[in-house]
Design a protein around this nucleic acid. Structure first.
Length: 420
RNA sequence: GGAGAGUUGUCUGAGUGGUCGAUAGAGGCGGUCUUGAAAACCGUUGGGUUAAUAGCCCCGGGGGUUCGAAUCCCUCACUCUCCGCCA
């Protein structure tokens, strides 16, 4: 959620954001303002009546205590509650309308975000390493894996359905090694606290990080229990401090968690149908930061560097993209994607996405901190990034470290995690 | 899953229809005293909305009864105890 004051005081800015994000049709800002005015008018009216009722009731209480006659006052107030109730339902209706629209407004964009329609207008910030050269035609990871018998898509389909897979032997061990490398790096060298928590969360949590209510059909929901499978550990981690007031001295808080991630990929029919690129369940190590507002853009650079370091350790060529306005997700104010080179697929593949959400998630989830003793609590800024997606990292390792005879060389950085 | 008990402010803990946003203690903060500290004493100390130290809202969530609800009723969630089941 963006600051409601911003909608009131600077509607033109909201319109501009919507336009830059190609979301002009999502919210009618003028309509929203009208509703806002109306609901505030209703609220003032309701409060006035409440005040009247409260003081009259107190009066009655006093009279009763003295044994006086309260029938006149009683008659006067009798109808008030009904009237208040009517107004309240009006306020509730307007609030509902307002909130629905408010929740749909995307975050403001940082100045440095380029204006653009879609991913073709993202900007290459930097590249690291070089594309590996092969003396043979490099294979895609799914061919390597299937030929080696370590990736089994057929049985994944049999057991669960399309876009599921089985790791056997080396693939399973490699991914576990990759996860361990990442967790060790982030906890021992980058200062994150290793955390572990639920993969299944309630609706408040899904709303807190922005998954609900808008994108509900993108996630698996267990209706019987009102719970959802997390699409990323960001949900678990960011909601750690939902409805809490943090101590300034504890900031920044950096946490990391590995989890399975579950996505329905509802809109992705026909896209990336082969291999590990787009699946319903994958593992990921997530990085989340809770920081003071002034520091959040510096922290974004740190977060990005922390994620990049994994690829450096694995010696995988990658590039960093600054997403343009049209490609930046609704709750983010600025997002960098890290794209790893996939020689078999012959293209770059997104392997991490690092975002600064400013106070957008914090406002939804009511995560605050106290800047100084005695001062009012202030919303923190939240950030998160993949550090990295493990399944895609496995695929990248397989493609980049393949040999002509169809085998995979274990990267140096993983050797201590795979000991025979 | 069955039976029972509970959910109040940073914490402990009162409050069962009427000036209760809430007694009291602890803790925190400020002060007096002290060379300093402790002790003692005095004061202060929730969140939201708002221009507001006005009003309004918040005693697990939602709904109801009432002129009036932290207090009564319904419902949901969670916690604890016992039993059952279980990695």
């Amino acid at each position: 959620m963006i600051d409601p004051k911003l909608i009131r005081e600077n509607p033109e800015l909201i319109k501009e954001i919507l336009k830059n994000r190609n979301m002009e049709k999502v919210v009618d800002v003028d309509q929203l303002q009208k509703i806002d005015e109306q609901r505030r008018e209703f609220m003032v009216k309701t409060d006035k009546l409440r005040e009247k009722r409260n003081s009259a009731s107190k009066e009655i209480g006093k009279l009763k205590a003295k044994g006086g006659d309260d029938s006149a006052l009683m008659n006067e107030v009798q109808g008030l509650s009904g009237e208040i109730k009517d107004l309240e339902s009006g306020v509730e209706r307007l609030n509902q309308e307002y909130n629905d629209m408010h929740l749909s407004i995307p975050n403001i964009l940082d100045q440095s975000v380029p204006i653009g329609k879609n991913e073709t207008e993202n900007i290459i910030v930097r590249e690291w390493g070089k594309k590996p050269e092969f003396s043979f035609e490099p294979k895609a990871h799914y061919d390597i894996g299937t030929d080696l018998g370590i990736l089994d898509f057929e049985r994944g389909v049999k057991i669960a359905g399309a876009r599921f897979y089985i790791y056997r032997g080396l693939a399973a061990r490699l991914e576990r090694a990759i996860i361990n490398l990442m967790l060790d790096l982030h906890t021992k060298e980058h200062g994150y606290t290793e955390t572990f928590g639920p993969f299944i969360v309630n609706d408040d949590s899904m709303t807190g990080t922005g998954q609900y209510p808008k994108f509900k059909d993108e996630y698996y929901r267990i209706d019987a229990d009102g719970l959802s499978l997390i699409p990323t550990a960001e949900v678990t981690l960011t909601n750690l401090y939902r409805d809490e007031i943090l101590e300034k001295d504890n900031l920044p808080i950096n946490v990391t968690m590995q989890s399975s991630c579950f996505r329905r990929e509802a809109g992705a029919a026909g896209k990336d149908t082969r291999g590990l690129v787009r699946v319903h369940q994958f593992q990921k190590v997530e990085l989340v930061k809770f920081v003071e507002p002034e520091t959040s853009f510096d922290e974004l650079e740190k977060l990005l560097a922390n994620a990049e370091e994994v690829l450096k350790r694995l010696n995988l060529h990658y590039r960093v993209m600054l997403l343009c306005s049209g490609d930046t997700s609704a709750s983010s104010s600025k997002t960098y994607d890290i794209e790893v080179w996939m020689p078999g697929l012959d293209r770059y593949l997104e392997i991490s996405s690092c975002s600064n959400f400013l106070d957008y998630q914090a406002r939804r989830a009511r995560i605050r901190y106290r800047p100084a003793k005695g001062e009012k609590p202030v919303l923190v800024h939240t950030l998160n990034g993949s550090g990295l997606a493990a399944g895609r990292t496995l695929a990248a390792v397989m493609e980049n470290y393949q040999t002509e005879d169809g085998n995979i060389v274990i990267p140096d950085a993983l050797k201590e995690y795979i000991k025979d």
